[in-house]
Design a protein around this nucleic acid. Structure first.
Lengths: 231, 231
DNA sequence: CGCCGACTGTCACAGACCTGTCACAGGGGT
DNA sequence: ACCCCTGTGACAGGTCTGTGACAGTCGGCG
């Protein structure tokens, strides 16, 4: 790697002219390819046209606000989103992350800081690339949304598939039941339920060679589950 | 009962009784474990005793002010600090961030807002501390929640793992049994028990080369235990 | 419009695995 | 030498997970 590394392109959606221009300049200087939009609508249009690798999105936008933009993007795309939030609008870091953003940066923001976050998110994203992932004899095709084992198609139910996808986006990382509930079921539980366990069990039945002694989806006692990378 | 995820504990340092009580109540309702102090001195003392995961710190304090508290904390600790400032003055913000705070919230503050900030800061911290740590031949993978010795997976029980994690977050620092009880077991004991010792012993049996003469988890007589950094 | 099958969430339960406690021995510090 | 502190092994109770059954829900299909 090295010589012909593609420069990732990013889309900056920010309505304030001064900030937008400043950030565009700064980010360009840091070596990014930057497209800009001044409204959510324009942003969504540019997204479709340009297919950037990452979006930097202001929360406070005229018309449809950042969160809504975020949600709409997430309906069709997985690309990383970094939210820009103003100090004074408060609650919304959480709302932001829950509406699907990958990171957030608090304004006023310096180009260098934003650049660092962008690189971090992109780096993270590389690992969880949108194409295909293999775990032993298991192949997850994120584009086709299919899972095959030894080349044979597995019939996963929607929930099973989502669970597997979430796990596979963080291979080798232990996820608590709480986290899985949030990621897969999108609701905050407090208290206990066997829900995650049950789904994991069903998934294992289809995915593992010997479901009773799983080698892919490992139990992390006291924590939750983890999808092990091969070997 | 499913108390999987460890509830982070936080320390609220605020001299105004009304605000302090209100915030404590609100934060407790949001599911945090809250300790409070009414002065900088008390706060620093509690910090040492309780080892919270995060500090919420009022800027305007009698005696040593918030900034100074902040700086003193930073001399020895890395834990996240959220400043409460009265004015939306930028000066405070700058001074605050320069004295080592991670975020700040402008008073009057609503519990919900503060809660959101707290979660955001903690989440950010999690990501950054999710790496791996090495102690001699021991490698702690905080993401996978695994511990390996000479590349071999160790089967730690949940409590052993939590104990090791807490120790490894403060390498070279002696932790009393009290502190460990709070951090690992999350209950305030008064009085004596061999609980910590027993767990340390079990952990040593798995972690140390020669459990009877430990080189990693050292006993600090009259105090507690300490995880030594390599060499 | 109604039936039917598939999928999900919940429950109860058993078993494996942990864990807190105790008593006691041994060692270190003063 | 003495005393307190720590290490250690056993054990009973408790906790956590895996698992099968079951009922409610949803969407598809006739």
């Amino acid at each position: 790697m090295g010589q012909n590394e593609r420069v990732p392109s990013l889309l900056l959606i920010e309505d304030d002219d001064a900030i937008r221009t400043a950030l565009e300049l700064s980010l360009t200087r840091q070596g990014h390819r930057v497209a800009t939009a001044a409204s959510g609508e324009d942003g969504l249009k540019l997204l479709r046209e340009q297919r950037p690798d990452l979006i930097v999105l202001d929360v406070m936008l005229p018309g449809i606000d950042g969160f809504e933009v975020c949600r709409r993007i997430r309906r069709t795309d997985q690309l990383p989103i970094i939210l820009l939030t103003a100090r004074s609008d408060d609650i919304d870091v959480v709302v932001g992350l829950e509406s699907g953003a990958d990171d957030y940066v608090v304004k006023p923001v310096q180009g260098r800081v934003l650049d660092a976050r962008i690189r971090a998110v992109l780096r993270r994203g590389e690992r969880e690339s949108n194409d295909a992932a293999a775990f032993g004899s298991l192949v997850i095709d994120r584009a086709a949304m299919t899972v095959t084992k030894n080349g044979q198609d597995l019939q996963l139910t929607p929930t099973e598939l989502r669970l597997l996808l979430e796990l596979s986006r963080r291979p080798g990382q232990a996820l608590s039941r709480q986290q899985l509930l949030r990621l897969v079921w999108e609701h905050d539980y407090l208290g206990d339920s066997r829900l995650v366990d049950a789904c994991v069990q069903r998934l294992r039945a289809k995915v593992e060679d010997v479901p009773s002694s799983p080698t892919l989806i490992r139990t992390v006692r006291g924590v939750g589950y983890r999808l092990d990378p091969p070997q």
